[in-house]
Protein backbone atom coordinates (compact mmCIF):
# COMPACT_ATOMS: atom_id res chain seq x y z
CA UNK A 1 0.00 0.00 0.00
CA UNK A 2 2.80 2.41 0.86
CA UNK A 3 4.52 1.50 -2.40
CA UNK A 4 1.30 2.11 -4.29
CA UNK A 5 0.95 5.54 -2.69
CA UNK A 6 4.50 6.48 -3.62
CA UNK A 7 3.86 5.25 -7.14
CA UNK A 8 0.76 7.43 -7.40
CA UNK A 9 2.62 10.50 -6.17
CA UNK A 10 5.39 9.92 -8.71
CA UNK A 11 2.86 9.43 -11.51
CA UNK A 12 0.97 12.57 -10.50
CA UNK A 13 4.16 14.63 -10.57
CA UNK A 14 5.44 13.33 -13.88
CA UNK A 15 2.58 12.22 -16.07
CA UNK A 16 0.02 14.90 -15.20
CA UNK A 17 2.03 17.94 -16.38
CA UNK A 18 2.69 16.06 -19.61
CA UNK A 19 -1.04 15.45 -19.85
CA UNK A 20 -1.74 19.15 -19.44
CA UNK A 21 0.53 20.03 -22.35
CA UNK A 22 -1.11 17.29 -24.43
CA UNK A 23 -4.48 18.83 -23.60
CA UNK A 24 -3.36 22.37 -24.45
CA UNK A 25 -1.89 21.17 -27.74
CA UNK A 26 -5.27 19.59 -28.52
CA UNK A 27 -3.63 16.21 -28.57
CA UNK A 28 -5.53 14.60 -25.69
CA UNK A 29 -6.41 11.58 -27.76
CA UNK A 30 -2.81 11.22 -28.80
CA UNK A 31 -2.03 9.72 -25.40
CA UNK A 32 -4.60 7.05 -26.10
CA UNK A 33 -3.09 6.33 -29.50
CA UNK A 34 0.43 6.22 -28.11
CA UNK A 35 -0.57 3.78 -25.41
CA UNK A 36 -1.65 1.39 -28.14
CA UNK A 37 1.56 2.00 -30.02
CA UNK A 38 3.53 0.74 -27.04
CA UNK A 39 1.88 -2.69 -27.25
CA UNK A 40 4.07 -4.38 -29.91
CA UNK A 41 7.25 -3.41 -28.08
CA UNK A 42 5.99 -4.78 -24.81
CA UNK A 43 4.74 -7.88 -26.63
CA UNK A 44 8.13 -8.45 -28.28
CA UNK A 45 9.81 -8.05 -24.92
CA UNK A 46 7.41 -10.59 -23.48
CA UNK A 47 8.01 -12.98 -26.38
CA UNK A 48 11.74 -12.86 -25.95
CA UNK A 49 12.11 -12.80 -22.19
CA UNK A 50 8.77 -13.72 -20.67
CA UNK A 51 6.99 -11.55 -18.15
CA UNK A 52 10.05 -9.52 -17.24
CA UNK A 53 9.82 -5.90 -16.25
CA UNK A 54 12.97 -4.77 -18.00
CA UNK A 55 12.31 -6.37 -21.35
CA UNK A 56 8.72 -5.17 -21.58
CA UNK A 57 9.69 -1.66 -20.50
CA UNK A 58 12.52 -1.34 -22.97
CA UNK A 59 10.37 -2.83 -25.71
CA UNK A 60 7.53 -0.46 -24.93
CA UNK A 61 9.77 2.60 -24.87
CA UNK A 62 11.44 1.65 -28.14
CA UNK A 63 8.15 0.99 -29.93
CA UNK A 64 6.60 4.18 -28.53
CA UNK A 65 9.57 6.35 -29.43
CA UNK A 66 9.73 4.92 -32.96
CA UNK A 67 6.05 5.65 -33.54
CA UNK A 68 6.28 9.11 -31.96
CA UNK A 69 9.36 10.05 -33.98
CA UNK A 70 7.88 8.76 -37.23
CA UNK A 71 4.63 10.63 -36.59
CA UNK A 72 6.51 13.79 -35.62
CA UNK A 73 8.67 13.60 -38.75
CA UNK A 74 5.67 13.10 -41.01
CA UNK A 75 3.80 15.97 -39.31
CA UNK A 76 6.73 18.37 -39.70
CA UNK A 77 7.79 17.46 -43.23
CA UNK A 78 4.68 16.36 -45.13
CA UNK A 79 1.27 17.92 -45.63
CA UNK A 80 -0.32 15.52 -43.15
CA UNK A 81 -1.09 16.96 -39.74
CA UNK A 82 0.03 15.38 -36.50
CA UNK A 83 -3.24 13.59 -35.74
CA UNK A 84 -3.39 11.89 -39.15
CA UNK A 85 0.22 10.78 -39.14
CA UNK A 86 -0.07 9.50 -35.59
CA UNK A 87 -3.25 7.59 -36.32
CA UNK A 88 -1.54 5.89 -39.26
CA UNK A 89 1.50 4.79 -37.28
CA UNK A 90 -0.25 3.74 -34.10
CA UNK A 91 -2.67 1.57 -36.05
CA UNK A 92 0.24 -0.13 -37.79
CA UNK A 93 1.93 -0.60 -34.46
CA UNK A 94 -1.19 -1.96 -32.81
CA UNK A 95 -1.75 -4.42 -35.65
CA UNK A 96 1.85 -5.58 -35.38
CA UNK A 97 1.42 -5.95 -31.62
CA UNK A 98 -1.65 -8.14 -31.92
CA UNK A 99 0.08 -10.25 -34.58
CA UNK A 100 3.09 -10.73 -32.32
CA UNK A 101 0.96 -11.70 -29.33
CA UNK A 102 -1.00 -14.22 -31.41
CA UNK A 103 2.26 -15.75 -32.72
CA UNK A 104 2.93 -16.98 -29.25
CA UNK A 105 -0.48 -18.62 -29.33
CA UNK A 106 -0.85 -18.60 -25.58
CA UNK A 107 -2.83 -16.23 -23.43
CA UNK A 108 -0.42 -14.12 -21.50
CA UNK A 109 -1.63 -12.39 -18.43
CA UNK A 110 -3.46 -9.84 -20.53
CA UNK A 111 -5.32 -8.35 -17.62
CA UNK A 112 -2.04 -7.40 -16.04
CA UNK A 113 -0.94 -5.57 -19.16
CA UNK A 114 -4.29 -3.91 -19.72
CA UNK A 115 -5.09 -2.85 -16.18
CA UNK A 116 -1.73 -2.80 -14.41
CA UNK A 117 -1.26 -3.67 -10.77
CA UNK A 118 -0.56 -0.65 -8.67
CA UNK A 119 -1.03 -2.59 -5.42
CA UNK A 120 1.47 -5.19 -6.61
CA UNK A 121 4.21 -2.72 -7.50
CA UNK A 122 7.61 -4.19 -6.65
CA UNK A 123 10.71 -2.18 -5.85
CA UNK A 124 12.00 -2.34 -9.41
CA UNK A 125 8.83 -0.98 -10.95
CA UNK A 126 8.67 1.73 -8.32
CA UNK A 127 12.25 2.75 -9.05
CA UNK A 128 11.45 2.82 -12.75
CA UNK A 129 8.43 5.06 -12.22
CA UNK A 130 10.33 7.36 -9.88
CA UNK A 131 13.24 7.53 -12.32
CA UNK A 132 10.99 8.45 -15.22
CA UNK A 133 9.26 11.10 -13.09
CA UNK A 134 12.58 12.64 -12.09
CA UNK A 135 13.74 12.71 -15.69
CA UNK A 136 10.42 14.22 -16.79
CA UNK A 137 10.55 17.01 -14.23
CA UNK A 138 14.11 17.95 -15.18
CA UNK A 139 13.31 17.84 -18.88
CA UNK A 140 10.15 19.93 -18.40
CA UNK A 141 12.04 22.53 -16.38
CA UNK A 142 14.59 22.77 -19.18
CA UNK A 143 12.15 22.67 -22.09
CA UNK A 144 9.43 24.79 -20.50
CA UNK A 145 9.81 27.96 -22.52
CA UNK A 146 10.43 26.36 -25.93
CA UNK A 147 7.55 23.98 -25.27
CA UNK A 148 5.12 26.75 -24.33
CA UNK A 149 6.08 28.71 -27.44
CA UNK A 150 5.92 25.57 -29.60
CA UNK A 151 2.38 25.09 -28.32
CA UNK A 152 0.97 28.57 -28.82
CA UNK A 153 2.99 30.07 -31.68
CA UNK A 154 5.05 27.39 -33.46
CA UNK A 155 5.85 29.48 -36.54
CA UNK A 156 7.41 32.19 -34.39
CA UNK A 157 9.57 29.63 -32.60
CA UNK A 158 10.73 28.22 -35.94
CA UNK A 159 11.64 31.76 -36.98
CA UNK A 160 13.75 32.68 -33.96
CA UNK A 161 15.32 29.45 -32.88
CA UNK A 162 16.43 25.97 -33.80
CA UNK A 163 14.84 24.56 -30.66
CA UNK A 164 11.48 23.89 -32.28
CA UNK A 165 12.28 20.26 -33.21
CA UNK A 166 13.97 19.75 -29.83
CA UNK A 167 10.83 20.88 -28.04
CA UNK A 168 8.54 18.87 -30.32
CA UNK A 169 10.42 15.57 -30.31
CA UNK A 170 11.53 15.94 -26.70
CA UNK A 171 7.93 16.34 -25.67
CA UNK A 172 6.85 13.26 -27.66
CA UNK A 173 9.57 11.20 -25.97
CA UNK A 174 8.38 12.41 -22.57
CA UNK A 175 4.84 11.33 -23.48
CA UNK A 176 6.07 7.83 -24.32
CA UNK A 177 8.18 7.52 -21.17
CA UNK A 178 5.32 8.57 -18.93
CA UNK A 179 2.88 6.26 -20.66
CA UNK A 180 5.27 3.38 -20.02
CA UNK A 181 5.61 4.33 -16.36
CA UNK A 182 1.84 4.72 -16.11
CA UNK A 183 1.36 1.36 -17.76
CA UNK A 184 3.17 -0.43 -14.96
CA UNK A 185 0.91 1.03 -12.32
CA UNK A 186 -2.38 1.43 -14.11
CA UNK A 187 -2.12 -0.62 -17.30
CA UNK A 188 -1.99 0.52 -20.92
CA UNK A 189 -5.65 1.46 -21.11
CA UNK A 190 -5.77 3.37 -17.83
CA UNK A 191 -2.41 5.16 -18.06
CA UNK A 192 -3.86 7.94 -20.19
CA UNK A 193 -6.54 8.60 -17.57
CA UNK A 194 -4.14 9.93 -14.97
CA UNK A 195 -2.63 12.21 -17.64
CA UNK A 196 -5.72 13.75 -19.17
CA UNK A 197 -8.51 13.79 -16.54
CA UNK A 198 -6.71 15.90 -13.89
CA UNK A 199 -5.38 18.16 -16.64
CA UNK A 200 -8.86 18.74 -18.04
CA UNK A 201 -10.22 19.48 -14.56
CA UNK A 202 -7.43 21.95 -13.80
CA UNK A 203 -7.97 23.69 -17.16
CA UNK A 204 -11.55 24.43 -16.06
CA UNK A 205 -10.46 26.10 -12.82
CA UNK A 206 -7.24 27.99 -13.51
CA UNK A 207 -6.33 30.72 -15.98
CA UNK A 208 -2.57 30.72 -15.57
CA UNK A 209 -0.39 27.91 -16.79
CA UNK A 210 1.58 27.55 -13.54
CA UNK A 211 -1.58 27.39 -11.44
CA UNK A 212 -3.01 24.86 -13.88
CA UNK A 213 0.05 22.64 -13.54
CA UNK A 214 -0.01 22.74 -9.74
CA UNK A 215 -3.74 22.08 -9.56
CA UNK A 216 -3.53 19.20 -12.03
CA UNK A 217 -0.82 17.50 -9.98
CA UNK A 218 -2.84 17.99 -6.79
CA UNK A 219 -5.98 16.52 -8.37
CA UNK A 220 -4.03 13.57 -9.74
CA UNK A 221 -2.49 12.75 -6.38
CA UNK A 222 -5.81 13.21 -4.59
CA UNK A 223 -7.47 10.81 -7.03
CA UNK A 224 -4.63 8.39 -6.41
CA UNK A 225 -5.23 8.41 -2.65
CA UNK A 226 -9.00 8.15 -2.94
CA UNK A 227 -8.72 5.44 -5.58
CA UNK A 228 -6.29 3.37 -3.54
CA UNK A 229 -8.39 3.63 -0.39
CA UNK A 230 -11.58 2.61 -2.13
CA UNK A 231 -9.76 -0.19 -3.91
CA UNK A 232 -8.44 -1.45 -0.57
CA UNK A 233 -11.73 -1.26 1.31
CA UNK A 234 -14.13 -2.26 -1.45
CA UNK A 235 -11.78 -4.81 -2.98
CA UNK A 236 -11.89 -3.48 -6.56
CA UNK A 237 -8.91 -3.18 -8.93
CA UNK A 238 -6.85 -0.12 -8.10
CA UNK A 239 -6.10 1.26 -11.57
CA UNK A 240 -9.70 1.77 -12.63
CA UNK A 241 -10.55 3.04 -9.11
CA UNK A 242 -7.90 5.74 -9.39
CA UNK A 243 -8.91 6.79 -12.88
CA UNK A 244 -12.56 6.76 -11.86
CA UNK A 245 -11.78 9.07 -8.92
CA UNK A 246 -10.05 11.42 -11.33
CA UNK A 247 -13.15 11.17 -13.50
CA UNK A 248 -15.37 12.22 -10.59
CA UNK A 249 -13.06 15.19 -9.94
CA UNK A 250 -13.49 16.08 -13.60
CA UNK A 251 -17.30 15.85 -13.44
CA UNK A 252 -17.39 18.00 -10.31
CA UNK A 253 -15.15 20.57 -12.02
CA UNK A 254 -17.35 20.47 -15.07
CA UNK A 255 -20.34 21.51 -12.95
CA UNK A 256 -18.67 23.95 -10.55
CA UNK A 257 -15.59 25.46 -12.17
CA UNK A 258 -15.59 28.91 -13.81
CA UNK A 259 -14.72 27.35 -17.15
CA UNK A 260 -17.29 24.57 -16.83
CA UNK A 261 -20.87 24.10 -17.93
CA UNK A 262 -22.44 26.59 -15.56
CA UNK A 263 -19.37 28.72 -14.84
CA UNK A 264 -20.68 31.76 -16.68
CA UNK A 265 -23.80 31.75 -14.49
CA UNK A 266 -22.22 30.71 -11.17
CA UNK A 267 -19.50 33.35 -11.18
CA UNK A 268 -21.50 36.24 -12.50
CA UNK A 269 -20.23 39.49 -11.08
CA UNK A 270 -21.47 42.97 -11.96
CA UNK A 271 -19.45 44.28 -14.87
CA UNK A 272 -16.99 47.11 -14.48
CA UNK A 273 -17.16 50.57 -15.93
CA UNK A 274 -14.22 50.05 -18.27
Amino acid sequence: MRRALAGCLALALGATPIGLFLLLRRMSLMGDAMSHAILPGAALGYLAFGLSLGAMTVGGIVAGVVVAMAAGLVARSSILKEDASLAAFYLMSLAAGVLIVSLRGRNLDLLHVLFGSVLGLDDNSLLLIAGITTLTLFALALLYRPLVLECFDPSYLRGVSRLSPVAHYGFLILVVLNLVSGFHALGTLMAVGIMILPAASARLWARRLTAMLALAVAIAFGSGVVGLLSSFHADVPAGPAIVFSAGIAYLVSLFLAPGGLFGARLYRLPHLES
Binding site: F152, D153, P154, Y156, V160, R208
Partner: peptide, 21 residues
Protein backbone atom coordinates in the same frame (compact mmCIF):
# COMPACT_ATOMS: atom_id res chain seq x y z
CA UNK B 1 -1.09 34.18 -37.47
CA UNK B 2 -0.65 30.68 -36.17
CA UNK B 3 -1.04 31.98 -32.62
CA UNK B 4 -3.33 29.74 -30.58
CA UNK B 5 -5.18 32.38 -28.58
CA UNK B 6 -6.83 29.80 -26.34
CA UNK B 7 -3.45 28.95 -24.83
CA UNK B 8 -3.08 30.41 -21.32
CA UNK B 9 -0.30 32.95 -21.91
CA UNK B 10 -0.33 36.58 -20.75
CA UNK B 11 0.35 39.59 -22.97
CA UNK B 12 3.56 40.21 -21.04
CA UNK B 13 4.83 36.68 -21.68
CA UNK B 14 3.95 36.82 -25.35
CA UNK B 15 5.68 40.15 -25.91
CA UNK B 16 8.68 39.05 -23.84
CA UNK B 17 9.26 36.21 -26.29
CA UNK B 18 10.57 38.94 -28.62
CA UNK B 19 13.71 38.91 -26.47
CA UNK B 20 14.30 35.25 -27.40
CA UNK B 21 17.54 35.91 -29.23
Amino acid sequence: SEIDTSFPVSVFDMVAMGLWR
